[in-house]
Amino acid sequence: MDIGISPIITDTDNAAAEKARQLQRQTKGTSTGLSQQQLKEAHKVSQDFEALFVGMMLQSMRATVGKDKLTGGGHGEEIYRSMLDQEYAAAAAKRGSLGLAPLIEKDIIRQESRTSVKKTDHQE
């Protein structure tokens, strides 16, 4: 039982829909008003902060463990352990083990988009 209702789509409807899709693609990711460079910097800073935080945690955890009697310790081993902990922290932050970097990045973008709006308001 066909009611006989057919969708009527005009060329202007298609053109308007295509124009809306193009605008959406252009503004995708830039709705914050920040450039791609600023977004990349926010991402890097957030990962660096998470790496610093994880590094501090590892340093504190290492301080609770006694000295290794097998290798003899010494200044060289302390430096090596410190560098190893930094690399562990950087790898953990890059992998997103704690999940702090995305939260920090989101907050940085939010704050920067507010300041960019204020700067443009004052310039007008």
Score class of each variant (00 low, 15 high):
101 A>M: 02
52 L>R: 06
104 I>H: 03
37 Q>W: 05
120 T>A: 15
100 L>S: 00
20 A>L: 14
5 I>A: 12
11 D>T: 11
51 A>K: 02
55 G>M: 04
19 K>V: 10
103 L>R: 08
12 T>W: 05
33 G>W: 02
46 S>F: 00
56 M>G: 12
54 V>E: 04
102 P>D: 01
38 Q>N: 03
59 Q>S: 15
87 E>Y: 09
63 A>P: 00
102 P>E: 02
74 G>H: 03
58 L>A: 04
23 L>W: 10
93 A>Y: 01
54 V>N: 03
50 E>T: 09
114 R>S: 11
41 E>W: 10
64 T>F: 10
114 R>W: 06
108 I>Y: 13
118 K>W: 08
95 R>D: 13
27 T>F: 14
102 P>C: 01
56 M>I: 03
69 K>P: 04
48 D>C: 00
72 G>Y: 09
123 Q>R: 10
49 F>R: 04
89 A>D: 01
47 Q>R: 13
86 Q>F: 06
86 Q>H: 09
10 T>M: 02
15 A>C: 00
74 G>K: 04
21 R>V: 12
122 H>N: 14
81 R>P: 00
9 I>K: 06
76 G>M: 12
70 L>I: 06
112 E>C: 05
109 I>C: 03
103 L>E: 07
92 A>P: 01
73 G>S: 03
49 F>Y: 12
57 M>Q: 13
104 I>A: 08
36 Q>F: 13
62 R>Q: 08
49 F>Q: 07
123 Q>C: 02
11 D>V: 11
45 V>T: 11
72 G>I: 06
99 G>D: 02
73 G>T: 00
106 K>E: 07
99 G>N: 03
86 Q>R: 15
107 D>H: 14
5 I>E: 13
41 E>R: 11
74 G>D: 03
60 S>I: 07
83 M>P: 01
52 L>W: 11
33 G>Q: 01
86 Q>V: 04
59 Q>R: 15
75 H>N: 06
91 A>V: 07
77 E>S: 10
103 L>M: 07
27 T>S: 15
37 Q>S: 09
24 Q>R: 15
35 S>I: 01
15 A>H: 07
